[in-house]
Amino acid sequence: MNIFRGIADFSHLAAIIILLHKIWKSRSCAGISGKSQILFAIVFTTRYLDLLTSFISLYNTSMKVIYISCSYATVYLIYMKFRATYDGNHDSFRVEFLVVPVGGLAVLINHDFALLEILWTFSIYLESVAILPQLFMISKTGEAETITTHYLFCLGLYRALYLFNWIWRFYFEGFFDMIAIVAGLVQTVLYCDFFYLYVTKVLKGKKLSLPA
């Protein structure tokens, strides 16, 4: 594993833990899109079905299990335990507009027309756009808690670092996967606007708020 991959995985883990911790500590999921979290739970579930078919390493298995469990725990906290604090009115992104086209694309453009392969492709495509309900919610309310922005930054950083990981793997291992690369690029681009706000506002100690 190269350095980019390593930092990326821990950045991803940090994002997941930051979010869980924030909800647990504040006993509230205000400002968090439950829809994005459901999409991430679907992403992990459909991608890590390989837990049942192939063993890579203890690290690999543990991370996959942690990602899946944390994402389900987050969904549970939002929709069950702290449901009263869930801001459903502002979480109004129509997820069917993401899931249906992404599902169609996964069936049409994949490496192999097999169930597990299509589900893997679906999870890659879905992950690239799964954050949209959350970004939509922030644009709707015009602001985000600072801790939420740290979560988003770690999540965006993770995908940006995977791009470097793929460049590395292409040069040193001759490996590349066009589906993952294109989806990863799309995903990273979606965070660019947010990265800009994070650097110019949050890192200077200001709250992230958008002009009305």
Partner: peptide, 10 residues
């Protein structure tokens, strides 16, 4: 076809 790298990356 076998896609080992796929199971490796998270």
């Amino acid at each position: 076809r076998e896609f080992t790298y796929r199971h490796d990356e998270l």
